[in-house]
C-alpha cells in the first residue's frame, strides 16, 4: 500500500489556481522531498494531505484512507512538524508532549514512556519541567519534532525541519530523521535546503506554480541536465574583475563568484579547463585549485522552476 497517493488534485482560491491537477504517490518507507519556490503550492498540498484544507477536486489518500472523507483515520498514523515551531510557550516540554499525545489518543503509560524517550533523544530531558518560553529556537524546533513523533507515526511531514537552526539542533534533528528512515517511517520533506533534499531523499518532486514539473530520484534528475556542468577554479588573486573576462571566454555559459572561487558553467568542461589555464598564464595568475562538477539538484531546481540566481541565493523572477 502506498503511504500517500495523490490523484488529479486541484485547489482553487477564487480565480487563483493553487494546485493544477497534480498527481504523485509516495511509497511506504520512502523519503520524499517536495521542493518548490515560495507560493508554488507546497503548503497547500500539505494542508490538503493533513486534512486541514479540502481540495476543489481530485483525491488524496494516506495509507488508503481518503483525507477528505476518512480524515480522522488518515491523520491517526501521521506526524506533522510544521515550519513554525508551534509549541505552547506557557506549558512545559513535558506538558506539550502529553497534550500532543492525548490529541493522538496515545494511552497514558505509552505516552509517558514515549515522551521520556523523545526528550532524551532530543537532549531536552533536563528541561522537561521548564516552561517552553525560555527555550532557544533550536530547542523549540527539537520539541516540535518530538511532538510530531509522540504517536509513533508511520508517515511524518517535515516542513523545513532544520531551517535557521544552530549546529547542535541541526545535527540532532538530522540524526533523528535518519533513525526514522532506518525504522521504515515514510518521510515527506519540504525544504528550501536543496542539498538537504539531495542527501536525504529517495525521490523529489519539484512543484512550480501549482504544477509538478519533475518527479524522480535526485541523481536521475541531474542526468536530465548534463549540459549544466561546471568548473570551480580558485586563483591566487580572486578579484571580481575576472568575472566579466571569464564570462567572455569561449564555451563559457555563465560565471558566478562562489566564496573565494569562481564557478564557471559550461557544456564542455575539459576544453574550458585548457582555456582557463591559458587565461591564468596570460594574466600571470596562479591556479590554486580547479574542480569539475556535475549538475547539482539546485541546478535542476533552477532550470525547472525558471528561477534565477543572484549572488549565492536563488530569487524568483518577478
Amino acid at each position: 500500500m502506498k503511504a500517500i497517493e495523490v490523484s488529479h488534485l486541484i485547489k482553487k482560491f477564487g480565480s487563483l489556481t493553487a494546485l493544477n491537477d497534480i498527481s504523485f504517490s509516495v511509497g511506504e518507507g520512502e523519503t520524499f522531498g517536495f521542493l518548490g519556490p515560495n507560493g508554488a503550492g507546497k503548503t497547500t498540498t500539505i494542508r490538503i494531505l493533513t486534512g486541514v484544507s479540502r481540495p476543489t477536486s481530485g483525491t488524496a489518500t494516506i495509507f488508503g484512507h481518503d483525507v477528505e472523507h476518512d480524515t480522522i483515520a488518515a491523520r491517526q498514523s501521521v506526524g506533522i512538524v510544521s515550519e513554525n515551531s508551534n509549541v505552547y510557550d506557557d506549558l512545559t516540554a513535558w506538558q506539550n508532549l502529553m497534550f500532543s499525545a492525548e490529541l493522538y489518543h496515545v494511552g497514558r503509560k505509552e505516552r509517558e514512556e514515549k515522551a521520556t524517550e523523545l526528550l532524551k533523544k532530543f537532549e531536552l530531558y533536563d528541561r522537561s519541567n521548564d516552561k517552553v518560553h525560555g527555550f532557544s529556537k533550536g530547542m523549540k524546533r527539537r520539541l516540535t519534532l518530538a511532538m510530531g513523533m509522540v504517536n509513533s507515526p508511520r508517515l511524518i511531514f517535515l516542513d523545513e525541519p532544520t531551517s535557521g537552526l544552530d549546529v547542535q539542533s541541526n545535527l540532532i534533528i538530522r540524526e533523528v530523521v535518519s533513525d526514522l528512515v532506518r525504522a521504515g517511517v515514510t518521510v515527506f520533506l519540504t525544504t528550501h535546503n536543496i542539498e538537504e533534499a539531495n542527501v536525504m531523499c529517495d525521490r523529489v518532486a519539484i512543484i512550480n506554480k501549482g504544477n509538478i514539473v519533475a518527479i524522480d530520484a535526485p541523481e536521475s534528475l541531474k542526468k536530465t541536465i548534463q549540459s549544466v556542468q561546471s568548473i570551480e577554479v580558485a586563483f591566487d588573486r580572486n578579484s571580481t574583475d575576472h568575472l566579466d573576462e571569464l564570462s567572455h571566454l569561449p564555451m563559457v555559459n555563465d560565471v558566478r563568484k562562489a566564496g573565494d572561487k569562481f564557478k564557471i558553467f559550461t557544456e564542455f568542461p575539459s576544453e574550458v579547463i585548457d582555456v582557463l589555464v591559458a587565461y591564468a598564464h596570460l594574466h600571470n595568475l596562479k591556479i590554486l585549485s580547479i574542480t569539475t562538477l556535475g549538475p547539482s539538484l539546485e541546478d535542476v531546481f533552477v532550470r525547472l522552476t525558471g528561477l534565477q540566481r543572484a549572488g549565492d541565493g536563488i530569487h524568483a523572477i518577478d
Binding site: 493533513t50 486541514v52 491523520r75 508551534n86 509549541v87 505552547y88 490529541l103 493522538y104 511532538m147
Partner: peptide, 10 residues
C-alpha cells in the same frame, strides 16, 4: 500557529 496543530489532529 498552534491552532493549526488542533486542526490537523485526528
Amino acid at each position: 500557529k498552534t491552532f493549526e496543530r488542533l486542526l490537523s489532529a485526528p
